[in-house]
């Protein structure tokens, strides 16, 4: 059952992931992206980190992709006109894709990584000295985030504040304002 779920979820993730760059319309790409993120959330759940799976669906598929779809709707760019296919960049992208994929597969097949996952029940005994043992519950995440990673959490809060201030500043129409100021100056010089 686990094997079937793994193959199903990874096929879902990879196929819908491939449809993101391939689909012509950005809206379709965003929809496939949501499917891909949900497939990844399923893989997280299969790995036993249920909290991360829930977070993936809530934050990525719920918040980030809604932002994307909103912007696509807002911009409403005309559908990509039938411009001539960019053959050189297609070849370059395909070569880069193949090389990276082959490299990753070779790396993954090395004997020290080609091992079965250890049983979750042994997490307490097998975890490294001083490390937080693996556990899918939200409780252990709380212990980790507000214990060992107290400072990074606060830095993250600051980063979000900085991003918010930056976005507010960027969304002001500075170009239009500078144009208006130029006009005022011209009128004054006349």
């Amino acid at each position: 059952m686990q094997d079937f779920l793994f193959y199903f979820l990874s096929a879902l993730t990879l196929i819908s992931g491939l449809m993101v760059p391939v689909s012509k319309n950005p809206v379709n790409g965003a929809m496939y992206m949501i499917l891909c993120l949900i497939g990844t959330a399923g893989l997280f759940a299969l790995l036993g980190s249920y909290f991360m799976a829930a977070l993936q669906v809530l934050v990525y598929a719920g918040a980030i992709m809604v932002l994307f779809i909103f912007i696509i709707m807002l911009i409403n760019a005309p559908a990509e006109t039938k411009r001539k296919r960019d053959i050189p960049s297609l070849i370059a992208a395909a070569i880069a894709f193949l090389m990276l994929t082959v490299g990753f597969v070779m790396m993954a097949m090395s004997p020290e990584l080609n091992q079965p996952m250890p049983a979750l029940e042994d997490a307490e005994t097998l975890a490294a000295e001083g490390a937080i043992p693996f556990d899918g519950s939200a409780k252990s995440y709380g212990f980790g985030l507000y214990g060992k990673y107290m400072l990074p959490i606060q830095v993250m809060g600051f980063l979000l504040l900085a991003a918010m201030v930056g976005v507010i500043h960027l969304s002001k129409d500075l170009h239009a304002r500078s144009q208006a100021m130029l006009k005022v100056k011209e009128n004054a010089s006349e």
């Binding site: 793994f6 880069a96 597969v105």
Partner: peptide
């Protein structure tokens, strides 16, 4: 499930993104 299966999936997903 082998560890390498997850590595292959993640690697292909990364390559698709770069593509």
């Amino acid at each position: 499930m082998l560890m390498s299966h997850y590595l292959v999936v993640a690697g292909i997903l990364f390559s698709i993104g770069m593509f």
